[in-house]
């Protein structure tokens, strides 16, 4: 038997871990935010969201933060329909899911083939209001619902793109997801489960931050995970699993994920994006 002090010790240790996690990602409410992400995809995808397939990240930024500007595809030509006869730089891969899939195919070459079953944004950006949201008479008397307010300039906007599906390499098939968005460039790469021993975070010679892990995120599958944050702020996240869901749930498709962590690193750092 032990006593209440031991319980308090346990609580204090958990607090210490919480503080470390909080300090590691101030104001960044990132990745795996399924509730947010699921609102951004059509209703038809709701069932898939329950199965844990949805990708997407949420960045929460203070208003008037210069970092917000970095969330814009700065300097690139994503305000597309300006057609000129001269050659313009190609749009970034995250411009839309179709383009992301096309570039992914090019990066993979003959390493692997894949089928896309779901597409979506890469992240949603929420801007913190610089003053309290005023309660109008209309909203004050409205029934309490969880529907997002459609008024005001603080609507979350989405950036980047994501694709989800199945991927086959060397005869092995598994679930994958891939998301890319122009991030704020303030936080490094992360593991979904930072406490796992397989989590490795390191800096690459070009200043990119790279995190990899091999962990069963859900239901006992095996998931290989990578996140790469480039010096220009671009965020690249990918999961492959031996199961249907890239996070490791759903039907088992293979004995191991179709791509190794090393292959994921080569894909993420490819210059063909």
């Amino acid at each position: 038997m032990t006593d209440l002090r031991a319980l308090n010790d346990a609580f204090e240790e958990l607090e210490r871990r919480a503080d470390a996690a909080t300090a590691a990602r101030p104001f960044d409410l990132p990745h795996r935010n399924r509730a947010q992400a699921s609102r951004l995809v059509p209703m038809a995808l709701a069932a898939a969201a329950v199965a844990g397939l949805v990708t997407g990240a949420v960045l929460l930024v203070p208003n008037n933060d210069p970092g917000t500007q970095a969330a814009q595809p700065g300097g690139s030509t994503t305000t597309a329909p300006i057609t000129t006869t001269t050659a313009t730089p190609p749009p970034p891969a995250y411009d839309n899911p179709e383009l992301l899939a096309e570039r992914f195919r090019a990066v993979l070459g003959d390493l692997a083939t894949f089928t896309v079953t779901e597409t979506g944004p890469g992240a949603s950006v929420m801007t913190l209001p610089d003053r309290p949201i005023t309660t109008t008479a209309a909203t004050a008397t409205a029934p309490t619902t969880t529907a997002p307010s459609t008024t005001g300039p603080q609507q979350p906007k989405t950036i980047g793109s994501s694709i989800v599906g199945t991927l086959t390499s060397a005869g092995v098939t598994g679930g994958f997801d891939l998301l890319m968005y122009p991030g704020l460039g303030r936080d490094g790469a992360w593991c979904d489960a930072p406490d796992e021993p397989s989590c490795s975070v390191r800096e690459l010679p070009d200043g990119s931050s790279l995190a990899t892990s091999q962990v069963a995120l859900e239901s006992g599958g095996v998931t290989h995970q990578i996140s790469l944050v480039r010096p220009d702020g671009l965020v690249f996240v990918m999961h492959v699993s031996n199961r249907q869901s890239p996070k490791g749930s759903g039907p088992v498709l293979g004995t191991h994920p179709p791509l190794t962590v090393e292959q994921l690193v080569r894909i993420a750092t490819s210059d063909r994006w």
Binding site: L14, E15, R17, A18, A21, R32, A193, P194, D195
Partner: peptide, 8 residues
């Protein structure tokens, strides 16, 4: 974290 025992 105290509730879930998992920071992630």
């Amino acid at each position: 974290t105290v509730l879930t025992c998992q920071t992630w």
